[in-house]
Design a protein around this nucleic acid. Structure first.
Lengths: 137, 137
DNA sequence: CTTTGTGCAAACGATTTGCAGGATG
DNA sequence: CATCCTGCAAATCGTTTGCACAAAG
């Protein structure tokens, strides 16, 4: 958990309540909220924060690399402050998105793909299934 | 490459020119076209095919499992007639999406995740990088 | 003949943009 | 005080829906 003010300063961005709140929220939550869920949360701390600002702010933070976008479900864009290496589990029933530990998958054949494609920046594993809470019983 | 008519019959869907053309197109192309690209292509074979029909048809084919949706880039929904197991390579520069052979990644620890989550239906690896054509030089 | 699919236009939801006022460094 | 950010409303993009007509089994 890093101080939002510090992060923003490092990137040369102005410190605003909205940005700090969004960074805090994304760092605290383990879920991967959509822009709308971020907006909803923001309106509790900072009432009347406009949706447009939430979208703009998320894009700004993404552009400087403080957060990342996740898109594994059609039409749903989620955000994540965890920019380290990790994989994802998606529940097909409730839609929850959990992080999976990077080590779990051992050594992935990155060199082989690199030699084939020239350059590889990211390797991610997506697991789709049904989480414990959504099991029939 | 399977006969579209046969596939549609097996699923109990009516045979229409639009559906056959879409299935043919998706089976022939190795790219993973967006709904709009499918519509654009269709208008060459079957001029005046409405966009709505393309969307409806893609959804119908998806519902019966003849094609699958792929969403790895924010806001971009792509379609794929290859419903076998395979992984994906995405070029961050030109956006091309290639299939990677399933065997390339060897044995993934599916049992381990299953024991943790209860049920796993699909495991997919996404590799992001820059393809040969987009290399600086 | 009954059901299902198509085409059109309008509706829709999520995201982006233009512009004026306000806060930040 | 010059710049960058916010808020609002309107615009835009991709996708879905309602309805009348047409085609398939």
């Amino acid at each position: 958990m890093v101080d939002p003010v510090r992060l923003l300063e490092q990137k040369g961005l102005k410190i605003t309540p909205q940005r700090c709140a969004i960074l805090n929220f994304l760092q605290q939550t383990t879920g991967h909220p959509t822009a709308d869920q971020v907006a909803e949360y923001l309106n509790r701390d900072l009432p009347m924060t406009s949706r447009a600002t939430v979208y703009n702010t998320l894009n700004t933070l993404r552009d400087v690399g403080l957060i990342s976008e996740v898109t594994h479900e059609p039409g749903v864009l989620r955000y994540d402050a965890n920019i380290g290496r990790h994989h994802h589990f998606i529940c097909k029933t409730c839609g929850r998105l959990d992080d999976l530990d990077w080590e779990m998958f051992g050594k992935l054949p990155v060199e082989q793909i690199t030699s084939q494609y020239g350059r590889v920046d990211q390797v991610e594993v997506i697991v789709r299934g049904i989480c414990r809470e959504c099991q029939p019983d």
